[in-house]
Nucleic acid binder design. Sequence first.
DNA 1: GGAATAGTGTCTGTGAGACACTATTAG
DNA 2: CTAATAGTGTCTCACAGACACTATTCC
Lengths: 209, 209
Amino acid sequence: MITKAPYRDSHGRRLSDYPQPSVAVDAAVLTVHDGALHVVLVQNDTGWRLPGTFVHEGETLAQAVLRSLRDKAGIEGLQPRQLHVFDEPDRDDRGWVISVAHLVVVPESSVTGAELTSVDAADGLVYDHATIIQLAVDTLRADYRASPDPEGLLGSEFTLLELLRLHEAIAGERLGKDTFRRHMIGQLVETDTYQHGVVGKPAKLYRRA
Amino acid sequence: MITKAPYRDSHGRRLSDYPQPSVAVDAAVLTVHDGALHVVLVQNDTGWRLPGTFVHEGETLAQAVLRSLRDKAGIEGLQPRQLHVFDEPDRDDRGWVISVAHLVVVPESSVTGAELTSVDAADGLVYDHATIIQLAVDTLRADYRASPDPEGLLGSEFTLLELLRLHEAIAGERLGKDTFRRHMIGQLVETDTYQHGVVGKPAKLYRRA
DNA sequence: GGAATAGTGTCTGTGAGACACTATTAG
DNA sequence: CTAATAGTGTCTCACAGACACTATTCC
């Protein structure tokens, strides 16, 4: 319970004396699996949907997203990012509910036991969830076009080939190693260590700038 | 009053039996005045701020923004666009309030009697309102970099010089008429009418593609 | 004609993309 | 040695930006 002198407006009313919506969060959890983008779906009585929950008091939207992922899909997420607020007054027949769509990006190893679906094959979802996935994919692709692994899916050190494979999986198309190298090299710093134990010339390890 | 069979969850409770936040909207209303971007500010007992209001039941966020502009600043707006949800649980000392920041772009003629401030000179505002303005300006500039007058501030027909002046005002820098022309011409269609009554060679009028 | 603006031909520099060549390892 | 991968030199093409030239109007 929060204890403080309650606010009253010019009519002597508290904020909670006026109608308020329930606020929900939904998350498109994207991960790279088998060289392509996949999204986490859960099933409830209304059908397949993105994991989500209602926001609790004293909690931010991001905290609600992370709680939802922990409880409903056993996922430890990182940094939820807001995409859009869905606010049609009658979109939920339980009452006045607005929903804030989020994007969460996780390494495949963080997803254990949840259902993965290719983003290209995700349809027939409840509400506006197919739209949310499209928004999430577009946002993620735009980010990865601009800088090397901004979500930190690879560890802190990686070879340029590992980075290339990741970016190709997210972009959904081949990128070309030489062009890619020149595009990214300015935003990376060399380390003095090399990959080893593989066939061919050992690759230098890089860090994000 | 909405009358329908009330929803009950597995504990027999309605959604409104759980704590709910108040949801507010704030709008950065941008317009081009005197060759530069300006923002509409209003003053209340807490200082200078962006116009905003609480969302009413049965209303979308966009409708709340437009109502707020009509009531508080006498502005007829068009298409509010969501920017970000500000959700820190203690950001408003009246209670649990989340706020959805919006961008609204209007022609100068729609702003009558409201206070205009250059976006470069807008500071000392309450809450996160300076941040919202920066977000709004960045969003608008990105849109105008990509296509000709996407907000339709000019009428349906305009000369390339008028379009150039508008884009320069929004970008905050000179753009160069020939480069600009070649960049935009692919997204415009000629009309068979010409500007007249001015000195010099009459300019062709264009429409958005 | 002269001033002013519209519209375009063209030159240059930059950068993306493709290709091929060299470098360095394992076996 | 050969196979395999890392890394780079270089060519070409396209396009942004700048400049200057031509075109068309008003006065």
